[in-house]
């Protein structure tokens, strides 16, 4: 039945980029070439060479080790953010779209209010209250992203609720929860996955931006964002300090988006001939 064929180019490239970063993050958990936090004043601002592959920063810390350590921080925070936003958003969206009425109005009122603030501003405000811990960031970003999930899910549910095959399932005698789980949620999946992958991209950017502004995971823990921020002082004579974290952010984004496209095509049976 199934044909063996090469996966599409976007899946291949996206998987490769993201795979390398995830592997680096996981390896970084147990082993890094150097201790990412160890300061070596004598070996500061060394250009990339055979010992320090990606050079050292203004305190003589190994950039490669710091990037690996940061990869885990950034990727885990972004992933947790998206999972939390999707979880909360799907629940609220389904309730609001399926039940309608007062629940719908209440949820949409809150959603619209949250959507009126730029996401990063909302996160900034929350972080100043919550304090900048790892979970504080997840909570703040998830809250900023949940409204878009609610919107998408609610809209899809509302149109599916009236569809002929949902009506058919009702006539068959299936219960409402069964119809929700079997007909409505799976058909929400395609738009949701597209949204979730682009959200993962935004989350990586936002986390880096927060770190860049000094509201991310507190130093000395490295993140791609705070490494980029620190590189500004020595940009003229140590460009590698800005280039490598920047590349990491770009590659992560590119990988996530390519993989998201491929995933959506794969999950939609209508895309198969």
């Amino acid at each position: 039945m199934k044909r063996l064929s090469l996966p599409p180019l976007n899946a291949l490239l996206g998987g490769l980029l993201l795979g390398i970063l995830v592997a680096a993050a996981l390896v970084g958990l147990v082993w890094t070439p150097f201790d990412p936090l160890r300061i070596n004043i004598l070996g500061r601002l060394q250009a990339p060479d055979t010992l320090h592959w990606l050079g050292t920063d203004e305190f003589g810390r190994d950039v490669l080790s710091r990037l690996m350590d940061a990869a885990f921080t950034t990727l885990s925070i972004s992933l947790l953010t998206v999972l939390a936003a999707v979880f909360a958003g799907v629940w609220l969206g389904v309730l609001s779209g399926y039940l309608g009425g007062l629940v719908d109005r209440l949820v949409m009122m809150i959603t619209n209010t949250l959507l009126a603030f730029p996401g990063i501003l909302l996160a900034l405000g929350l972080l100043s209250v919550l304090g900048n811990s790892r979970y504080g960031i997840v909570l703040a970003l998830a809250l900023a992203y949940t409204p878009s999930v609610v919107r998408i899910v609610r809209g899809t549910v509302r149109s599916l609720r009236e569809s002929d095959y949902v009506e058919a399932a009702r006539v068959m005698g299936h219960s409402e929860p069964f119809i929700l789980a079997r007909h409505i949620l799976p058909n929400c999946l395609a738009p949701l996955i597209v949204l979730a992958t682009s959200m993962l991209g935004w989350a990586i950017i936002s986390e880096s931006a927060l770190s860049f502004l000094g509201l991310g995971v507190p130093p000395p823990r490295p993140t791609w964002g705070n490494m980029l921020a620190a590189s500004r002082e020595n940009l003229a004579d140590a460009a590698w300090l800005a280039v490598f974290p920047g590349l990491c952010i770009s590659f992560a984004l590119l990988g996530v988006n390519l993989l998201g496209d491929a995933l959506r095509d794969f999950l939609d049976p209508r895309m198969k001939p």
Binding site: A168, V171, G173, H183, N187, P269, R270
Partner: peptide, 26 residues
């Protein structure tokens, strides 16, 4: 019930086997 439009009355994500099996599950 048999509906009017066979293009919208079947869940696009389900295989024929699952569609016909659906009423039997009850």
């Amino acid at each position: 019930m048999i509906q009017q439009d066979p293009f919208s009355s079947l869940d696009p994500r389900m295989r024929v086997r699952q569609i016909v099996d659906e009423p039997l599950r009850l």
